[in-house]
Design a protein around this nucleic acid. Structure first.
Lengths: 417, 417
DNA sequence: TATGGTTTATTTAGTCCTGAATAAAGACGG
DNA sequence: CCGTCTTTATTCAGGACTAAATAAACCATA
């Protein structure tokens, strides 16, 4: 409650690495300012990192009126991470470099309902790892559509996957002998956004995802809000209409059941806009082609989303809302209903809240998951627990080859509470 | 000697005082555990505080198998704080001791719409201060129904008061020459709950207030969530019904317009349950007397509140929800609709979320405001800014003059609730 | 070309805090 | 009564970090 003393040096060392990964080469002076430590300490820390071979001194940067800065950059071979997205019918992988860039990606069919789902995902992941580079693999980040007890534990509850207390983290750790961090996929996306995206400039923002499900990642004071059981941001189950359609969660009329992908398809089918087996793609095509009824489906969804988001903005008072997810492909149709509904539902002092829609890529979810690993350096609140410490250790150890210590398991670091 | 250069030590020093105020006499060992610092440091810090006369060594507590603890207690004369609640038609004051207990209180008529409102409240406050005790006055806490930019600044936006960018903090500071902290009243209440109430045992909880308005105080990781402009928790303006009654904010169908006090009275009048000038008290009396139509008004409000709260629980994943406010007087009627609506709208993993209804007193709002001052010791995140530092300085300075005060026994600290 | 101004990096002295060892003070069982 | 155990409090050596002074490197300008 009072002060967090602790072994902060470790966090600081790798916060430098993370900053360089996210921002590119930086001078010691800028690093000290960015990380809010004294220049003296920065000299000390970078000396160690240079000696360890994790950092390299680059060219001098042109002077800005005084002594020119000697830039420091990451040594590219310092590490990489793998991100995994688990969906009901497939898993997606990406491999990212230490600076956050995607090196390669893949997607494989997968059945989350199979009894062998854990060994299946392990095997697929093993194959993906095998095809990877030679630089040290720092860890695995896994994103799931559901609640995760702790990132460093990885017990998953997910209605969408039909999983109940599934030990994803423990299994993968045991099988792969790598640090594994598991998190709700929207929260992982919010962390990625904070590290590499628009969120860099904001301390308080909301990541709103539309697609199969409807979700929110909540960032407060620069940190993702997880809630007591890791289930914060489940806005897809905000009750809207007690007589509405059945939701995967068992209740009726949840937001997600109405404007999630399945909900939109259902509405479109009922209205005869798409066929009995028509999908969201057909609906979007129709809307794009000028079908007003099809466009109305999106627009009405946008209207509802706008009203719900207004409630969230009143509740959380964010500086900006970042819209992401597969559904953004049809955002031009959503926005027609969304914007007026949002603005007219806000109290005057919030009416100017910013909304940004970012471009979406197929591997964005997996990239978000990978950022769980790359974000551990920032983890001064110990969200990642002992797995985060493991990642940091790997970052430091890989640089000193003589440290060929035998396979020793992570010392059970007695997680408090 | 009195003023320490480092803010960190300062925070720790007063965290001790706050803990003793909230928890009563405590041993050094327990303090070290509670504040998460080493016993060594605790010895050091308490030595200083004892020398400064802020702490006193009390009787030995019975041994628990080992060396018996020497309890430390607050010296009651170390300070007091004043809390102010500003409402559209009155202001309320309380004076609290350093342990959080109410020493005296008052309520005065007031017109927030008058052009002289700031000088009015200043004058009333001046009079209240004049009637107070002789122990050092640490500062003033002010609770307002609206958004406050920063506690240490005190620029207020409030639809309920009809205030726009009113410099409450600056004015009071200038006129009274005391530290002044201003905060949204529900947030202040949440802080009080965290310091002295049920919230002591929870890191993540929601304070839900029903009464004139509907509000929420959001506590995440033990800290009140303010949002980027200090307006988080404004759940009263969550849009419910686009065709609903007009709200003070200018929109239609806000939650507060429907189930806030005025909304309930409006409904009751429309249904002929109370007269044209009937108030909420008449409605409650009718319901208490067995009038089913009157009870239904509350029950329906409870139903709506339960559904909205379910959305909040999904969004924020709190451990417990604490219900407060004048409206709790009729909670027995609310709960009839509230409980089933809440539980049936929650996804299964959240269905067990705890809900506690605490007893409400007239001066609770003002007491919450006062806790802004008493909470500054906990303020490691610097929420209170320079005003918080001022409070801490006053706490330390006042003790120095008569440093040779004899070992006096501190009176037993009462539990404030 | 000397002089001063600016920005970056390092060194130095000192503060805050911790972990570990030690002392203090009782309970308890034989 | 004695030794052992447990819990509390203090002392001490050392690590992390900072502020301030200093050094280093460049620019501008009379």
């Amino acid at each position: 409650m009072a002060i967090r003393p602790s072994a902060r040096t470790d966090v600081n060392r790798s916060a430098i690495l993370a900053h360089l990964g996210a921002q590119g080469p930086t001078s010691r002076a800028d690093l000290a300012r960015a990380l809010n430590v004294s220049p003296a300490l920065m000299t000390q820390l970078t000396k160690d990192l240079l000696a360890d071979g994790l950092l390299a001194e680059l060219e001098h940067s042109p002077s800005q009126g005084g002594r020119p800065a000697r830039m420091l950059g990451l040594v590219a071979t310092a590490g990489r991470a793998i991100g995994v997205k688990i969906a009901p019918d497939h898993v997606a992988f990406v491999e990212v470099g230490i600076a956050g860039g995607v090196l390669r990606s893949a997607s494989e069919p997968f059945d989350a309902a199979a009894s062998t789902m854990l060994s299946d995902v392990t095997e697929l992941l093993r194959r993906f790892i095998a095809g990877g580079g030679k630089t040290p693999l720092l860890g695995i980040g896994v994103g799931v559509p559901g609640a995760v007890d702790r990132q460093g534990s990885g017990l998953v509850d997910s209605a969408q996957l039909g999983w109940n207390q599934v030990p994803v983290g423990a299994t993968l750790r045991r099988e792969l002998d790598l640090p594994v961090l598991v998190e709700n996929n929207v929260n992982a996306l919010a962390m990625a956004e904070r590290l590499y995206g628009l969120g860099r400039q904001y301390e308080d923002f909301l990541v709103l995802t539309i697609g199969t499900g409807i979700g929110a990642g909540i960032v407060v004071d620069g940190v993702v809000l997880r809630g007591v059981s890791g289930g914060a941001g489940e806005i897809g189950h905000i009750p809207i209409d007690a007589e509405g359609p059945m939701c995967t969660c068992g209740n009726r009329g949840c937001l997600e059941a109405i404007i999630g992908q399945a909900g939109l398809e259902r509405t479109a089918r009922e209205r005869g806009i798409i066929g009995a087996h028509g999908t969201i793609d057909a609906l979007r095509s129709a809307a794009d082609a000028g079908d007003e009824a099809a466009a109305a489906v999106f627009s009405e969804a946008g209207h509802l989303l706008g009203r719900v988001l207004a409630g969230l903005v009143h509740t959380l008072d964010p500086e900006i809302v970042i819209v992401l997810g597969e559904g953004t492909a049809s955002w031009n149709h959503w926005s027609f209903g969304f914007e007026p509904a949002l603005r007219s539902s806000l109290i005057s002092s919030r009416r100017g809240v910013a909304v940004a829609v970012e471009t979406w890529q197929d591997d964005s979810w997996a990239q978000g998951a990978a950022s769980l690993v790359l974000a551990t350096p920032f983890d001064s609140d110990d969200v990642a627990g002992d797995q985060g410490r493991l990642v940091r250790e790997r970052l430091v150890e890989q640089a000193s080859p003589q440290q060929t210590a035998p396979q020793q398991k992570a010392p059970q670091q007695g997680e408090a509470q």
